[in-house]
């Protein structure tokens, strides 16, 4: 195959992949359909379990990284802004870089590495062991019980953890800088809160909602692509992680363009 043939083949494969993926998550999330049975106790219990695994269990790691990012990145930003422009643009820069960019992206990367891989492996193994079929025979829908709770939890976790990450990063950065460079932390935080208009909040929510949707859907999609061989589990897990990161950064780029 020549070079252009190879390029063409890859393009068609990518296009088909995007169509498959889009179909998967629109179909999985079409919970309003009459035959779906999403609002029941079985799904609720699965949702709770996933929320603990994806959200609560990740808090320690997110906290640690947020403190480190606060000390390492936010304080550097504050130092640079003080050195170049004084404190006048500080809050706008913090809102733009930490709240709109750093928080969602770092949280997304952690969730891809931690939960996306785990979900893909979990669903892949469940499928390889033949545990899904008997549930279908009992009338339990795979999308209702396995997919929807995982995607919903990923969205909730992404939004709340990104918010938590941003708050801790800013607080740590501001207090650390105030201690080192001797300025008023209270004043900076008040200015930052005043800078937070509704647009920033909406973009923050939309961005994290979309990130969570992508990560959750990618994990479930690749987990359920496993057929009957255990060797497919690590392959699909790797694809879920890599493509999750690619889509995450593509979405981030799109939002950055949108908010410029």
């Amino acid at each position: 195959m020549n070079f252009f043939g190879w390029i063409g083949q890859r393009f068609i494969e990518s296009l088909l992949y995007i169509i498959d993926f889009t179909y998967f998550f629109t179909h999985s999330l079409s919970v309003w359909q009459v035959q779906r049975n999403v609002f029941n106790k079985a799904v609720y219990s699965s949702l709770l379990g996933q929320l603990i695994f994806t959200g609560v269990d990740a808090i320690a790691m997110i906290s640690f990284l947020a403190v480190m990012a606060g000390i390492g990145i936010t304080s550097q930003l504050i130092y640079i802004m003080h050195a170049i422009t004084g404190a006048s643009d500080l809050t706008a820069i913090l809102a733009r870089i930490v709240v709109s960019e750093l928080g969602p992206v770092i949280t997304g990367v952690i969730l891809v590495g931690r939960s996306c891989s785990a979900i893909a492996v979990d669903l892949g193994n469940t499928k390889v062991r033949g545990e899904i079929e008997p549930l279908e025979y009992m009338g339990i829908d795979v999308d209702d019980y396995f997919v929807v709770p995982r995607i919903v939890c990923m969205i909730i976790s992404q939004v709340t953890l990104a918010l938590y990450f941003s708050i801790i990063t800013i607080l740590c950065g501001v207090f650390f800088s105030a201690y080192i460079y001797n300025f008023s932390a209270q004043e900076s935080l008040t200015q930052l809160l005043n800078t937070m208009d509704i647009d920033i909040v909406i973009v923050f929510m939309l961005k994290n909602l979309f990130f969570g949707l992508i990560i959750g859907a990618m994990a479930c999609f690749h987990g359920l692509l496993v057929e009957n061989s255990p060797t497919q589990v690590p392959q699909q897990m790797q694809r879920a992680v890599v493509r999750g990161l690619v889509f995450l950064f593509l979405a981030d780029g799109y939002f950055s363009l949108f908010t410029l």
Binding site: R129, G130, E131, P134, Y137
Partner: peptide, 9 residues
């Protein structure tokens, strides 16, 4: 089904 095990998780 004999081949269909319980949900292991």
């Amino acid at each position: 089904s004999g081949t269909a095990p319980l949900l292991s998780v």
